[in-house]
Design a protein around this nucleic acid. Structure first.
Ligand SMILES: [Mn+2]
Ligand SMILES: [Mn+2]
Ligand SMILES: [Zn+2]
Ligand SMILES: [Zn+2]
Lengths: 143, 143
DNA sequence: ATACTAAATTGTAATAATAACAAAAAAGAA
DNA sequence: TTCTTTTTTGTTATTATTACAATTTAGTAT
């Protein structure tokens, strides 16, 4: 059940703790780029002793070890992604969904930009998602 | 002195107010991508009646009118840029500087990504800036 | 120039995300 | 099993931003 996550932690010589395993499992099963509150309140249901601070701490150490990445795309809160591979994101200004954008980008892999050492790359697109556009059209057509 | 900023506001049929002119002038003279606090505390010196809320309000309306853009690059606070043209940014994890990155990007101008309507594009690089790297080298060489 | 009205500014209070901290608990090594 | 270090927990503090109501002001009409 949790072997996969145990292995990830072990590979990074991190201590195996229940909160860390749960956070990893949650992110692995929810590729929605959740924020801390979503992760916390969901896990809290089945793990009532869990502390919000622990979720922050766990995510921080997972990020430091490059097991997860954080996205500042919303502007108000960090979102988390267990997919550490470099990929771009789209946020819908209507429904708030954050979606992966799989495009090739020539600047993505560069470790140097203008003489600066690059350690992290984030590509954000903001607008109206496909779904919300469909809804919009439907509304104007029907009534 | 302020004609330039008056014109910008007029062109967007926005009311000409002292706080708006001052915010525009500040951004025009400081291409450092300042946050609200930096703008506010600087203007407050010469305009003691200025309210922090007004700076927030002004920036919001300027952004809505696409006169300025906001950057979520720092993760904790929005940064503002009077240069509305699409360009990428680099933030230094050491000194906090936010710098323009002028690179051609094939994805920048696209108004559609994966079927989603794109209204805004942000490209962020994070790492250690050129200056901080030089300092680092100097330190390790000299002791 | 004056009066009017909608919009903007101000100050304060509320909210929300995150960080700091100390005590209790738990992981992993000995 | 014992010990030590790290993690977790709960609480409090901080910071960025928003909400709101009262006051002021910009721009327009008179
Ligand atoms: Mn993703
Ligand atoms: Mn810029
Ligand atoms: Zn949507
Ligand atoms: Zn730097």
């Amino acid at each position: 059940m949790y072997e996969k996550y145990v292995k990830i932690l072990k590979d990074h010589t991190l201590k195996i703790t229940s909160p860390r395993l749960e956070v990893l499992k949650y992110l692995d099963e929810h590729h929605t780029h959740p924020n801390v509150e979503e992760i916390y309140s969901s896990l809290k249901k089945t793990h009532p002793s869990l502390s919000r601070t622990t979720v922050y701490n766990s995510l921080e150490i997972l990020k430091k070890n490059r097991i997860v990445q954080s996205l500042a795309i919303s502007g108000s809160e960090l979102r988390y992604d267990i997919d550490e591979r470099l990929h771009h994101h789209f946020i819908c200004n209507r429904c708030g969904a954050i979606l992966d954008i799989s495009i090739a980008c020539p600047n993505m892999d560069k470790t140097l930009q203008g003489g600066h050492r690059v350690e992290e790359v984030q590509g954000y697109f903001k607008g109206i998602c496909k779904k919300c556009q469909t809804k919009e059209k439907g509304r104007s057509n029907n009534g």
